[in-house]
Design a protein around this nucleic acid. Structure first.
Length: 259
DNA sequence: ATGGCGGTGGAGCACCGA
């Protein structure tokens, strides 16, 4: 079963890329972030025509997440822990795997959090605390699950071409890195790193200053696996070439295969 | 390099992203 995650930076601007990627990578499940539209504006028909069920948790202008799946889904919207949080950053599906089992998959768009020292950074840390608490709840079920998405965290210096440039940034603050490590310490497995320890694996390149041309990238999109899912991990990869397409998102897809 | 690009809303340019 192939699961991928991709921050598309507006699904309406990226529809051609999205359909191309579905054909090319043929994921069973694709988690999307930053769809940047309301549910009713999502290009549902085109994606259903490509053979996918569509579930969205949209918002006007900003944020918004979705899950596309070949198989039907049972859906929950919103990250538990704060009834007043109105930002559309979390959607979770339980998907029948067709072999008598089920896989839970979440599409997550964690806050950026810049600038550090503001309410935005406090919101980022609070969101990550809620994510950790939710992960703890899910782990108690002892089931297969994947928490996939744009975490807006650079986990280690190996995950940036120029880590020294990010020391003052919310993506690489000690508190942000500690939150990622806390998820790891709960027993969640960073799927890409589990199979690919090498340097130079990035998922985001800024549009500015020729970051892509200089390969000045960072790795901030992650698939975190429960132990039961990690036991079945057979492949993991970044689809780097997608950043070279015409009018690309600033993020690329990351995908895994579970046996 | 507290902003070089790109998306959104809405018809200017401010706000947001990372």
């Amino acid at each position: 079963m192939r699961i991928a995650t991709w921050n598309v930076n507006s699904v309406r601007q990226r529809l051609d890329h999205l359909l191309r990627y579905l054909r090319e990578a043929a994921p069973d499940v694709l988690c999307l972030q930053e769809i940047k539209c309301l549910d009713e504006a999502f290009p549902r028909a085109e994606i259903e025509a490509a053979g996918y069920n569509v579930e969205t948790h949209g918002q006007k202008t900003f944020n918004g997440v979705a899950i596309l799946s070949r198989r039907p889904m049972q859906i929950a919207r919103g990250l538990p822990g704060d009834e007043r949080d109105e930002q559309a950053r979390y959607i979770e599906a339980v998907i029948d795997d067709g072999a008598g089992g089920a896989l839970r998959v979440a599409s997550i768009y964690a806050p950026n959090g810049n600038p550090v020292g503001t309410e935005k950074f406090a919101y980022k840390l609070a969101f990550l605390e809620r994510l950790i608490a939710h992960a703890r709840e899910l782990l108690a079920l002892e089931e297969r699950f994947v928490l996939a998405g744009d975490y807006n965290i650079i986990p280690t210096p190996l995950d940036a071409k120029r880590p020294q440039d990010w020391t003052g940034d919310a993506l690489f603050q000690p508190e942000s890195v500690a939150a990622f490590r806390a998820l790891s310490n709960l027993g969640l497995v960073d799927a890409l790193r589990a199979l690919r320890p090498e340097a130079g694996l990035y998922t985001f390149w800024d549009y500015q200053a020729g970051a892509w041309q200089k390969d000045n990238g960072i790795r901030i999109d992650h698939l975190m696996l429960s132990p039961e899912a990690a036991d079945r991990l057979s492949d993991a990869a970044v689809d780097r070439h997608v950043r070279g397409w015409d009018k690309p998102s600033d993020h690329i897809p990351v995908r895994i295969d579970l046996a």
